[in-house]
């Protein structure tokens, strides 16, 4: 698929590195001795960071969401899947909620909505995959995935996409499951997986010493944007995920050079239980 094809466009050593070439790939390393939240995102607004919300759509002009740069919908007709610009907004309320949370944390980030809901249950996993492929092709910095699939026949493709995104510097942030089932993509090491904690502080983040769930963020009784310009209260890992997406947008807006691997390290080092909050 095209996503995998444009992974490396620059001339860099791919499979081996000659002894003389070490200097030519010197990477910036201006990390302080102690990574603090002030260093990580102090003064950041999310400006310049492109965030994609893969969900049920986002209501246009919701006061808690503000400007949505672009809205597309993924639809399925027979075997054909299309991605097209869309003005129908949100079919459920959930996507608007996620977008509002991201906006509340990173007020100046750029938001794009990709609707992967509404094409019927039967084609839902294929539509989700097509939406994710599109998002990776577009080169978003962050993709918020407050969703999962249990369909095993799509696991390999999802895994390929998660790895492709990782190497293209698109960070996938995915909701973990708090039910005893095998679901994806949150279990993959290449994504940032998120569960909920009970603190009302949107910046309290816990690093989990026992993955696969890697981080816990605010997911209980969260005031969220909903369809019809409404504001309601909700609970679920779905709402913890955009908190981490928002914090990642802040970090990336201040440190554009970070790879997903480095971003995850910063998240870890600034987690509340690792000494973050300082």
């Amino acid at each position: 698929m095209s996503v995998l094809a444009h992974e490396s466009e620059e001339e860099l050593p791919a499979w081996s590195l000659p002894a003389s070439a070490g200097e030519s790939i010197r990477l910036p390393s201006d990390w302080p001795e102690r990574v603090t939240r002030e260093w990580a995102w102090g003064g950041a607004t999310g400006a310049g960071v492109r965030v994609c919300v893969l969900d049920s759509g986002v209501e246009l002009d919701h006061p808690l969401v503000g400007t949505v740069q672009r809205s597309v919908a993924v639809s399925k007709s027979g075997d054909e899947i299309t991605v097209a610009d869309d003005t129908a907004g949100d079919l459920c309320g959930h996507g608007t909620a996620c977008a509002g949370i991201i906006r509340s944390i990173a007020p100046e980030c750029e938001l794009t909505s990709v609707r992967v809901l509404g094409a019927g249950y039967t084609g839902s996993a294929a539509v989700l995959i097509a939406g994710l492929e599109w998002a990776i092709e577009q080169g978003f910095d962050i993709v918020n995935m407050s969703l999962s699939t249990t369909k095993k026949q799509y696991v390999d493709r999802l895994h390929e996409l998660a790895d492709a995104a990782y190497f293209k510097r698109t960070v996938l942030i995915a909701s973990a499951h708090n039910m005893p089932v095998e679901s994806f993509p949150w279990r993959f090491a290449a994504v940032v997986s998120v569960g909920s904690h009970e603190s009302p502080d949107p910046f309290v983040v816990y690093a989990n010493p026992r993955p696969p769930v890697e981080f816990f963020a605010r997911g209980l009784n969260v005031e969220i944007a909903w369809v019809g310009g409404a504001t309601i209260n909700a609970t679920g890992n779905s709402f913890a995920t955009p908190h981490i997406a928002g914090i990642c947008a802040l970090i990336l807006s201040k440190h554009r050079e970070l790879t997903p691997f480095q971003l995850k390290s910063v998240l870890h080092l600034t987690a509340t239980n690792v000494g973050g909050g300082a």
């Binding site: 969703l147 999962s148 909701s175 499951h177 039910m179 309601i232 609970t235 679920g236």
Partner: peptide, 13 residues
């Protein structure tokens, strides 16, 4: 999406 949800104040919708 296989994700469980809890929503209050649905009358606002």
């Amino acid at each position: 999406t296989r994700q469980p949800l809890v929503i209050d104040d649905l009358t606002q919708d």
